[in-house]
Each structure stands twice: as C-alpha cells, then as structure tokens.
Design a protein around this nucleic acid. Structure first.
Lengths: 211, 211, 211, 211
DNA sequence: TATGAATGAGTCTTCATTCAT
DNA sequence: GATGAATGAAGACTCATTCAT
C-alpha cells in the first residue's frame, strides 16, 4: 500500500463463470477433498487449488471455511429428509415404510458418498458449535420422521425387543455401519452390495420386529 | 527478560532411564494425548512435554509422528486380536462365541475410540498409506478369526439368511455402525448404551441365525 | 444457498449523483471512518460500504487509498491555516494573537485527532513520502503565520528569553505535546482538559513573554 | 506430515548466537522497525528479516508479537524510572529536582528515540489491554515520582498557576512535545537543540513556578 | 461510471522436522 | 541419547488493487 511493488501481474485468471456456478464448483471441490482428507485436511488452499482459483476467491462466496462445509451438509441432509418424508406419507404398512426408509438411506449414502460421510462420519467438534445448529436441526427432523414410523410399529405391539428408541437407533446404526464401511474400505473383499443390503435389512427386521 | 516461556514442566530434565524404557514412556504419553485429543491434537510438542523431554528426543526413538501413532494402534488392535482368539478357543456354542466377539468388539471400540477411528474410520490422508499396511493386516486377522466362527454356524446349517460372507459382514458392519455413531455423535440422545448393545446383538443374532 | 454475504446495505445501489458529488460523499465517509478507526481501520471496503458503492468505485475518483486520506488531511490543515490567517489579521495585541493561535491549534488537534496525528505525529511509512509533500507544505504555511506573529512580539522587545525561533518552536512543541498525549493516552488521569489548556497557555506566555 | 515434500533443505541457517544474544537482537530489530513503521508496520516477518532469521524463530523467544513490543516498553520505562528515582533522592530544592527530571526526560527521549516513541507515542489499543497492565504500572510509577516533587513545590506555595496535576501534566506534556517533534520531523528547521531545551525549561519553570 | 469476481502479497501463528553441539 | 535453536511449509484470513464486462 505504501510504496513498494506494483508490477502489473497478469497471470492465468480464471474466467468469471457467471452466476452461482463458481459457488457450486467450490462446494463440489470441497466435498471431494473433505471426503478424501477429512475436515482438517480440507484446507482453504487445497479447495481453491482444486477449483483453480486463488484462496482469496473462496471468501467472495463464503464467509469462512465452516460456512462451506456446513452448506454441503445442509444440502445433503435436506435431500434425505425429503426422501424420508415422502416415504412416510405412503399408505402402506409401517414395517414396509421403515424398510423403505432404511433402504433409501443406504441408497442415498452410496449415491452421495461425499456428503454422506461429511454429515455422518464427521468428527464432531470441528466446526464451531453454534453454527452447526441449523444443520443439526435438519438431521434431527430426518431422524424424527423415521422414529415416528418405528413408533407405529411399537404401538401395534410388533416390536420384538428393546424400546422404540433403542430399536430405531439400532436399525439406523446398523445401516450406517454398512455404508460407512463400504465407503471407507473399498478394498475389502465385500460380498455383493445388493446381497449385503438384503441380508442386513432382512436380518434387522426379522430380528427386531414380529410379524 | 520476562521469561514466561518454557515453564520448567514436570521435573525439567528426565533422568536417563536407559534403553527401551523411554520408548515405552513416550508411547504411553502419546496414547493419553491421542485418546484425549485425537490425531490432530496429538502434537509432537505436547507428547514431548508430557514425557518431560524435548521434542527432538522423540526422534531418537521414532522415525516420525506417524510411527508413534501407528504403534499405538497396532497395540490396540493386537489386543482385539488376542481377545478374539481367546474367545474363539472357548469350548462353547459358535453362536455364543460370535456374540462374545461382537460384544468384545464394541467394548474395544468404545474403550479405544481414537485408535478405533484411526483404523476403522480411516480418515485416509492422516497417515501415509504404505505405513498403515501392517496395522491393517492386523485388523484383517481379527476379521478372519470372526469369519471362521461364522463359518461354523453356517456349517451347522443355522444361518437364517445370506451367505457366510454377507452374514458375517452384516454383523460386523452393524456393530461398527453402532460404535461409529456413538463416537461420532456424542450429543445425540442415545438410548442407554448397554440397552443399545443388547438390542443390537439380540436383533442381529435373532435376525440372522436360527436356533 | 444461504446467501448471508453481501447484505443489501443502505440502498443496494446508489443513484448516480453525477459528477463531483460522489467524490465528496466518499471523502465524507472516509473521514467518518478515519476519525473513528484511524488510518489502519479505514479500509477501502469499509469506506465503500459506508458510501454504498463497490470498492472498485472508489478507484474511479481516487488513485489509491493514500490519495483519499491525504485529501482529508489537506482539508483539515487548510482549515487550521484559515483559522491562523484569520487570527493573524485581527487588530489586537500580538501576544493575544499568539495565544489565540495556540488555542485554536489545540482545538483543531482535539477535533481532528486522526488527521492531526497523521500529519504531525507522522507514523512514517503509512503514506508514501512523496505524496505527503503537498500536505506538509500546508502545515508549514500554518507555522509561518504563527512564526511571524512571534516575530512581532520579539520586535516589540517582549521576548523574555530565547530567539524568535526557539520561542516559537517551544510554544508550538508544548501545545503539540499536550494534544499528542491527550490523544495517545486517553486512559491517563488527566486534569480537566480546559484547565490543562489554560495552565499550559498561561505558563508558556508568562514564561516566555514579558508584559 | 503425511507424505509429500521432504527435500533436504539446507539453506543459510543463522548460527546460534549463544544465550540471550538472539533475544536481544530481536528486541533491537523490533525497536528499529517499530520506530520506522509504527506498531502495525512492525510485522513479525519484517522483524525476523531484520534479524536475519525465519519468522518462526521469533516464537522461540517470545510468546507472540505483543510480548516483544511490551518488553521493549518495559525496559525503556524502567530506565526512566531509575533516573527519576535517583534525582528524587537528591538533597536539593524541589524546583531544581523538577528541572533535572524534565531535563533527564528529554535526554532519555533523545538518546532512546525508538523506545521513547514506542512507549509515549504508542497508538493506544494496539496491544491487547490486559497484557499492558505491567507496563502501564511502571509508567505510572515514573509519573508518580515526578508528581510528588511537584507536590512539594505546591506545598511550599510556589505554584504560580494551576493545580498540582495540571501543572505537572503541562510540564511533562510540553517536554514530550519537544522531543516528539524533534524526533518526528527531523527535517524541520529547528533552532539548536540545546537552546530549545533551555528555552523550554526556563519558560515552563518561570511560567508555572514563583521564586 | 460502476460492478462482481478475482488476485498477490501479506497478517499472525503452529506444526513436524532438522542442525549443531 | 539428548538438547536448544532454527527452519520451511502450511494454517485461516484480510487488504488494496485490478480485470472484464
């Protein structure tokens, strides 16, 4: 500012990419890197490099690093919530709905591996607590829709074991474990994915629900 | 002059504790910090301070930070392997052994959350791929012991659904999911852990195995 | 999408206000911020936001940040020069005129603390030397008017001690010291400002001038 | 830490400079730069460059930037305090002591221009408030010694005008103004320094104290 | 004349690691 | 074996400035 250095710097400036395009590019790049290297590994610099812009450029579109990552989470969870809500409204047996939800959950995770791991494998405590609220509320809604369906099952006296909470949480956790491992350990000699899904869901429902 | 920095910590200079003793001390200190603050929080300086030596000293005993942490993980998983082997040798029903193994797995994960996450939730990029090999091999051995027990069940014609692989993998994945979520989302309103464990194991075994 | 950034501020887009109006607006806004937050605090962005235009827009009217701030200083010192000139023209005793000038100087400094400090406490390096020339010339004129009044006193044989130069410089320096400290150390338990001013001026004039 | 980049980097490492030498070097460099460019201009990088070491090296000797600058202040003020205390103890007339103190003050400032400006021309609010306490306490002691001497004068009924506070503060401020301007505007056509000092002190004492 | 998007240089600070003793 | 002092790379983030429209 004072005196020094005013070379005309003309270096590969990335063209504008009109509208919200750039914002989307950044989100995608961040998602990729987050998946590959975790929250701490997803540095502003790496994201910027991946997009092909300067680090500074990210700050045009997002207030700070947290905002980027939280936005990814929000988007992903919202998608899942829509799926759950839609299934929840179907006029079919509660057990069938639960199964559909779990199945949709697995599909979602496998189809959105980045976002999924970001949201559900996220090391807690990395993003400053208060900003997370909105995102966590969304996640809670998701779970609530699922939970209320399990409630129905329970109300029908069809819960074979456990409480509504422990049964619901077990089912969720089991499916989470499946996709988490599939995504995390791709080199493991897994049984065919479709079979795994089937066995997991059959096992869970047969194990926790009576006919 | 205000010296402030470099508080004389513990006892300012450790007496030599010849040979491998020091190595063990370092591992213990590193484990404490690793457990308390995770991989990123376990900095060389903190570990050195905890031991009461200079950061440089750690490099006398370990090539680099990764070597320290991987050694901790190795130790942890070896423990799990011993546990599995021991259970595997018991003269009891195969189903009972599977249940004990899964239960031990859950216990292990909850008691060694950081080692567990480092190995099984593989935030790849934290430790360079090649160095992890040894550790992963240990993990595979663990699974093999478990798998062979499921084999027995299958051989007895008691598998309700799926193949040996898909059943074993489902059980493992389900338990993994439970601990992963418990560790990752401590703020979630979980049912009491003991009940969750019970429901999960009951559900899985009832769902996948016949009497 | 969470837009958050870029709040539409004031009225989102300023109507054109043709010609030099905009320039004046910028100067005013810059002055407000400059006074409130000092040189470093007066960032281009803050100024632009205050005016309600983009940062880029400032560069339509000013070569760079320095130009804006120097122009503010110029304005401020010009004010002081006018004041001095006006006093100098009054048909009253030279000593009275000197006193009025010193008093006006103090008032000016306290009312334009940042401009004052920029010019008279020259944190060199803030603004590039060469650009300051014009501003400093103005300051010199101020001093010249003052000096010539002291000359009159000396010509009347009323200088109690020192030369015209040393007396004038002492008076100026003393008043400068007062305001500099008042501005720099606001937390110091100063005597009431008005009393300080009075004592300083009485002391100086009684000390350096004979009746 | 993970994989990348381990070139053997061997570049001009500055030799150790045994003991507290390096610490002193840093303080001196910081003083020089602070004088030339102000607090904000005295960046860690510039200081490190001036010393000829990496920025990181500064953190071996000081917790943070503030600690460096505060230590400079502390040293300088302590020196001044010793001077004042010594004069205060002399068995001579209070007015003579005041004059000696002011004279010593001027000498000190001219001989330690860096430290002086750092302490007395320092923009307030730059160093985090709480850390400043110790330094400010020292400064207060300095002033107190001076103040109590003025008190004696007042007790003897020899204060020509003003209160103890306003008189003491005026004298201090006037001398401060002199050195501040001499240091800040070296290009100004000043009267000979010795004469200026004399005129200033004569004027002040004649103006504020009766025989 | 004005803009949004971009940029390089720079801010302080922390980390794992290495050099010389 | 062990140390204190040093280092380069990187962390998030801000600033004045410029390019293309």
């Amino acid at each position: 500012m004072t005196t020094t250095l005013k070379k005309p710097q003309r270096s590969a400036r990335k063209p504008k990419g009109d509208g919200h395009m750039r914002r989307g590019e950044i989100l995608q790049a961040a998602e990729r890197i987050f998946l590959a290297e975790g929250y701490q590994g997803a540095t502003i610099r790496k994201i910027a490099d991946e997009v092909g812009v300067s680090s500074t450029a990210l700050y045009m579109h997002f207030r700070d690093k947290d905002e980027i990552l939280l936005e990814i989470c929000d988007g992903a969870i919202a998608k899942l919530l829509r799926s759950n809500s839609e299934i929840s409204a179907r006029p079919i047996d509660a057990v069938a709905r639960v199964r559909l939800m779990l199945d949709a959950y697995i599909t979602f995770a496998l189809e959105n591996p980045n976002a999924y791991q970001l949201v559900f494998c996220g090391q807690s405590g990395l993003v400053s607590e208060d900003k997370q609220e909105a995102t966590e509320a969304l996640g809670d809604s998701c779970y609530d829709v699922f939970l209320s369906t399990v409630h129905e099952i329970s109300a029908n006296g069809r819960l074979r074991t456990g409480t509504v909470d422990s049964a619901a949480q077990s089912m969720w956790a089991a499916c989470h474990g499946l996709v988490a491992l599939l995504l995390t350990k791709p080199s493991f000699p897994w049984a065919p994915t479709e079979e795994l899904r089937g066995v997991m869901l059959d096992g869970l429902l047969h194990g926790l629900v009576t006919d």
